[in-house]
Design a protein around this nucleic acid. Structure first.
Length: 240
DNA sequence: GCGACAG
DNA sequence: ATCTTGTCGC
């Protein structure tokens, strides 16, 4: 069985200031492929980033799950000092360097990546999912928990319902209900996938909870372990 | 000048 | 994102 080709393209410098970052986004945006260019999908990955030490340390996690079983197959975690501030619209420059480090530590290379953040639903049509998809040359989907830009009409309350997210006449994404009566997700093209397919994949990866299983796994890894309550006088649980 | 603003 | 306990609802 031929091993999957792994690649992390050095498209540009990451050590840049906000103005240069925005310029890079405008330069790379035209390279995003908005149509389905996926092969056989047997491994799906979720990526998520968390912070510790009051934001001084960035934790990037990647969780690879089997498809269609959605069983954990591989995972990796990278920790490194935070070097870029949080600026709406420039999230990829803050989070992707750590994500790439985690990707490099993976033993199993995914065939599709679900990102925590926007794809095309971005001021310059180049959100984190587009950026990561392009750098990895992998099909990628943007799955955000809240809106960055765009407007939309009423969304029916049932799981599976979705309406287009637009800006002017342009459709930049979809607002998707993954659970009955629960806040929707903002799905958009990351790279090498159509919007319709992106919505399908998100719904298929989120059969039970609001967030895709991939994202949930990655989130658990990326979240810093919380300090135990001070009220517990027992320093460690009594072993059985 | 006043909001809005992925994580 | 993170800081943080309890609480309302299915």
């Amino acid at each position: 069985m031929p091993s999957q080709r792994r690649r992390i393209r050095p498209l540009h410098d990451w050590d840049v200031d906000p103005a240069e970052a925005a310029a890079i986004q405008r330069a790379l945006a035209p390279r995003v492929v908005r149509e389905d260019r996926l092969g056989e999908i047997r491994l799906v990955a979720g990526i998520d980033v968390g912070f510790e030490a009051a934001g001084g340390v960035t934790r990037a996690a990647v969780a690879v799950l089997s498809w269609p079983g959605l069983e954990p197959v591989d995972q990796a975690l990278a920790r490194r000092p935070t070097t870029f501030p949080y600026v709406p619209g420039l999230l990829s420059f803050r989070e992707i360097p750590a994500v790439l480090e985690a990707m490099a530590a993976l033993r199993q290379w995914p065939h599709l990546v679900l990102c925590d953040g926007q794809g095309l639903a971005h001021p310059r049509r180049f959100g984190l999912a587009c950026h990561l998809g392009l750098v990895l040359d992998l099909p990628a989907i943007g799955v955000a928990k809240s809106r960055l830009v765009g407007t939309h009409g009423p969304l029916p309350p049932r799981r599976g319902a979705w309406v287009p997210l637009t800006e002017g006449e342009e459709v930049i994404g979809a607002v998707v209900r993954t659970r009955d009566g629960v806040r929707p997700l903002y799905v958009s093209i990351g790279h090498r996938i159509s919007l319709a397919s992106a919505v399908d994949w998100v719904l298929r990866c989120a059969p039970r909870y609001r967030l895709p299983e991939t994202t949930r796994q990655a989130h658990r890894l990326a979240s810093p372990p919380r300090a135990p309550a001070t009220g517990s006088r027992r320093r460690s649980p009594a072993p059985p």
